[in-house]
Every structure is written in C-alpha cells, then in structure tokens.
Design a protein around this nucleic acid. Structure first.
Lengths: 348, 348
DNA sequence: CTGAAAGCGCTAACAC
DNA sequence: GTGTTAGCGCTTTCAG
C-alpha cells in the first residue's frame, strides 16, 4: 500500500479544529499579536506542531492587504558574491517582516529617470540600494520624489535624512592597524584606495589614528596611492618594497590590492608572512582563494540587507500610524578575520 | 495640492472595467491561455498598459491552488558568487513558471535525513541542488523517496533517471585547448583538479582529445596533479616550470590553480602571457581580479538555474496530467572568455 | 478574550 | 467566446 500521494498542506481550519477553538482564535494565537488565553495559546501551538502547519503566505498577504513589495535593485557592477549575500539576508528577513521581495536589475546604460520609472511600475513601496547605486543622487532623489522609501547599503556618503545600513570603516581600519601594532610592527605601509571614495578616506583615517594613539611616528612615504584595483596594488606594492627601509607590514585598502602585494612579495622572494605581513579589507572570495590566505576585515553584508529590510518595515509601520517618516541608520559590527598573511615581524 | 498618497495597485477588476469586458475575459486575456476574441484581447492589453497592471501573485496562487513551492537548497560550501548567480536565474524564472521559490540553507554538519525532513516540512514540491549537494546520494534518494522532485545542477555524476542541467565540460576543455593550439602552442601543460571529481576527468579528456585531433604528441610529463586549490596549483606550476623544456602554455583545471600558476611565473620572472600563456576554467571572480586577467571558460550558472526551474515546471505539469515522471537533461553552452593571460607563443 | 461574517484578487468550473 | 458563481486560506471588521 502506497502512502496517499495527495499531501495538501494543513490549513488554519484544521489547526483550529484540532485545538478546539475557532479559526479566528487560532489565527490570533499563531500571529501572537492579539490577546489570547494561555490555554488556547498552548492548544493551538500543539496543534500547529502536530500538523506541521505553515501559514499560507499568499492567503495571508491577500487577506491582510499588507503585501508591501520592496525591491533589491542592483546594477551590473554589483558582483555576484556581494549580491548573493545581500539576497540571502533579504530573502530571509522579508517574509518575517511581511514584505515581499522582488529583485530588479537596472539596465546597463540607463538614466536615473528610466530606472525610477521601472521601479515605480513594479509597485514597490521601498528599495534597497547597494553601492554604487546608493550614491547616485539623481536616482535616490527620483525614487523619493515618488514616495518610494530608499535604504542605502554601505553608502559612500550618508545624507542625514536617509535610511542606511553600514559598518564603521574608520573603526575597522583602526582595529586592523592596532592588530598589526600589537603583533610588534612599527613600520606599516598603507595602500590607499580610490581617493574619490569616502570609504577610502575613512580607512586611511582609522589607520592614522591607530598609529597616533600608539605613539608611532608616521612616515608619509609609507602611504602610497592606489585605486582599489589589483593592477594599482601591483604598482603600490612595488613602491613600498623599494623603500630604503622596507615596511614589515602592509595594510591594503581592499583585498584585491592586498593580493597584488602578495604577488609582488613572491616575485621578490620576500616571504609572506615571515618577512612581511599583508592585510586586506572586505573579505572577498579572493581573500581565501589565494595563498597565504588574507587576514582581512569582513563586512556583514548579509546582516546589512537583513537590517535594511527591517528599516523599511519600520518606516512603513510608522507611515501607517500616520507618523513622520522615521529616519534610521544602523551601524553593524565588522569582523577581523585572521588567516595566514600576518605574523610577528622578523627580528633583525 | 499634493498628489493622493494612496497608490493602490490596480486590480483586474479595474482593467476589466476600463476594457469594457468582464473580469473573467480580462483574466483570460492576461493569461493568454484560453480563447479570447482579438478585439477583447487588444482592449485588455491596452488597459493593462495604461493602468500599469501587474497581476497579484498571491491572489493568483491562492485561487489557482497551483502555488507550488520549490526550494533552492545550498550548503555552506556553496560560494556566495555561485549562489548569487543561481538565485538571480531562479528568482527571475520562477514567477513565470508559476512557482514560488524559497531558499534553504542546510545546517553545517547535518545528516541527509535531517535535511530531507527540513525540506519536507517546507512543503516544497521540488528542489534545486547545486554541487556538491547534487552528488550526495543519500540526500537525493531521501528527497525522491518523499516524492520531491530533484534537479541536479552541474552534477558530478548524472544518474540516468535524474533531472539535471549542466554544461559539456569535455567539449569546453577541448575548445580551450584548441584555442591554445590555434594560437600556435604545441607544448601545453595541464594542471589537473581533484581526481575524484568527474568534472576533472572530463576536462582532462577534452584536453587529450584536442591534442590528438590536432596531431600533437602528448608528453605525459606535462600533465601534473592538483586538487582544485590555489595551494596545489602552486606546486603543480612549480613542476611545470622546472621541466627541462618548459611548456609555452598552461591549462589549469580551474581558475584558482591558474591564478597560482601566474603567481609562480611572476616569481620566476617569467612573463605572462608573453613567455607563457595561462588559462583557467570557471570564470570565478578571481579570474578578473588578478593581473593579467584570466582567459577562461564561463559556465552559464544563471541560465542553469533558469533551466532547472523550467525542468521542475515541466515535471509538475506532466504529473498533473497523470503522465509518467518526465526525465530531462539540459546541456548549456559554455563560453570562452578571452582576457589577457594568453598570447601567441614567443619565437625561439 | 472570543466568534461570525465578509472579503482580499484571482481563477476553476460551469453555465449561456 | 463570454459571463456567472463560488471559493482558495487567511485576516479584517464588528459583535458578543
């Protein structure tokens, strides 16, 4: 005898029947919003467990009319890895906040206005904007002009009246530098990112602060320019390695440039990390793909999109209650990922 | 005067009214399934456009009772980039096939049975399994035992009665090798991947075939072992570079090992690509992050998940019609991505 | 605190 | 071809 092939998902009706209460009470108990007697609550909870009941999201959305849609907008320049993390966070959080997530890609050469139209036609109430979209003011303004809530993810410049999530880059750079100092390094090279990005200046600042706070004189020759690309990291590292007195450690403003520095070291038969420690920033896939794997700073991208959804939900709630538009900013903790590219400096 | 803040999405009712037909006709016209007069069809289409009507997925799912859920299951070892691509493809295709996609991550050390339970409790009718999950037979069998359709993405071993999507690795390796041969290379080194993976043997096979078909004698010393890791690529490349007669080109079985080969070349002050061409496989983010950027093979991951959704939809349709379980396999075209790591061999 | 009735937007099923 | 009726599973009223 086969088991019956028809396995329809249990409905709230069945749960109610089994718990001996009305459908309405069951609904309330499941959602936990309204007041329900402890007894009813427990009965329902048991029934739910026994039946393996999962609320039907469609029905819920339809009935509640609260199926607000939010979009995760991404451009061609968002890397798959970044997007993947963003998606994972947002997809996980959205249902819990009673939001429906849609994913929109903006066309390569599109104007801000076109994108705004596209988003508006999707009938979304809010948009999550990862970099670099979040720094495109025409786009942000256009969206807001149409009453679409915008939350910026790791924006380069963070307007005071914006919803945003991000990490404290300055502080992260400070911590990474301190880590190197505590290892015993005193001569630390720094490879800058694109000077037009605020993220870069914040990281440089953190680096400088750490040096100062630990009473280390900064040799300006140790700070060399770069632009976040691997290619630029190659040149920057060459300069650092050619210095009369070589640094014992190098802090690159991102992983790509750190990887480039490792390549240069290898080329010169300088051992990493025995002869020179090299650290990156961002914890991209590259960081763990190369050898030695990079000690770097990880931004909790997944958590960021989770929080972004939360911020949106909060804004909607406040709108429903007729309040002013809430502005919110959340700063998430970064993480120092220690791998194999750093060590105590060699003794002379 | 402000514009009215309440912007409810238009319903099919409004569309019907505007088009001067009944709701049902509008529904049929929108879905294109049933027969509708050309006139009504056009009227509805115009109304849809003018109102910016988008069918409410929840209502549709609820009414049709066809809101089949499918899961994209991923393990901790699926990289974010791979997952991101998979997600993009699946998220785009699922709604069109009237499927609702959920994303499930399986717990790090979980047993197959636990994962099967988890999936079953999510009430999904089908699961997309990226590698390495698709090669975990306990998991696959467990799922199928519960009548959950499984589609394997780029499986290492492809059972005859399985739904699967993938690319022709052997053929891709053949093409990449031919590319090198056409450039003028005759002495081509090959860095193998983990010998336990079929993907590896298929790639080796393609390489050998290409050599044979072009009348090039294969020097077995040119095929060196690796295991797909950067670390192993370093060792393999060292062996290749130490050969009495160095190869003029190296084909590494994946990008990580190709990147390692480039590092080794740099170390030895061998120019890439002037002195040695180096190609990878997979087109991971690494391929374009390093310098010179890798010429490699790209698998259309996004398309794969799209096709996977299609396969699932097809299977469900056939089930509804009471037919046998359809088995389907789709092979997608890979792409040879030419970047800067290959060139015509140097003349002696 | 609980329940009954009504309806969310849409599509099966059956009429015309 | 087209319209009518009913109902998907749930939550919102509004009465108890």
């Amino acid at each position: 005898m086969d088991k019956p092939p028809a396995r329809k998902a249990p409905t709230i009706k069945e749960v109610a029947a089994r718990a001996g209460v009305s459908v309405m009470t069951a609904s309330r108990a499941v959602n936990g919003k309204a007041l329900v007697s402890a007894k009813a609550q427990q009965a329902v909870e048991r029934a739910v467990k026994e039946l393996g009941y999962v609320p039907n999201a469609s029905a819920r959305a339809l009935a509640g009319n609260v199926d607000r849609r939010v979009a995760l907008l991404h451009s061609h320049s968002t890397t798959s890895a970044y997007l993947g993390e963003l998606l994972l966070g947002a997809l996980g959080e959205a249902p819990q906040r009673h939001l429906h997530l849609v994913v929109e890609q903006c066309a390569p050469g599109a104007f801000a206005e076109e994108i705004v139209d596209q988003v508006a036609q999707a009938h979304v109430a809010g948009v999550i904007l990862p970099p670099p979209l979040c720094d495109w003011s025409d786009l942000v303004d256009g969206l807001r002009a149409r009453d679409i809530a915008v939350v910026a993810v790791a924006p380069d410049q963070d307007g005071p009246d914006m919803l945003s999530v991000g990490t404290d880059d300055r502080h992260a750079a400070y911590d990474l530098t301190r880590h190197l100092i505590e290892l015993g390094h005193r001569r630390i090279g720094f490879i800058e990112g694109n000077p037009r990005h605020r993220a870069n200046s914040r990281r440089v600042q953190g680096f400088r602060d750490a040096l100062i706070h630990h009473g280390i004189d900064l040799d300006e020759a140790l700070i060399v320019p770069g632009d976040f690309s691997y290619r630029s990291g190659l040149d920057a590292a060459e300069r650092l390695m050619s210095l009369p007195v070589r640094p014992t450690a190098i802090f690159a403003c991102n992983d790509d440039m750190a990887a480039a520095a490792i390549t240069v070291a290898h080329q010169r038969r300088i051992n990493v990390p025995a002869d020179v420690s090299i650290c990156g920033f961002d914890d991209t896939p590259l960081a763990s793909a190369i050898w030695p794997a990079l000690t770097t700073i990880r931004q909790p991208i997944r958590d960021m999109s989770r929080e972004a959804i939360g911020l949106l939900a909060m804004r909607f709630r406040s709108q429903e209650e007729g309040g002013d538009d809430i502005i919110g900013k959340v700063k998430l903790d970064y993480q120092l990922i220690r791998r194999q590219s750093d060590a105590v400096p060699a003794r002379h």
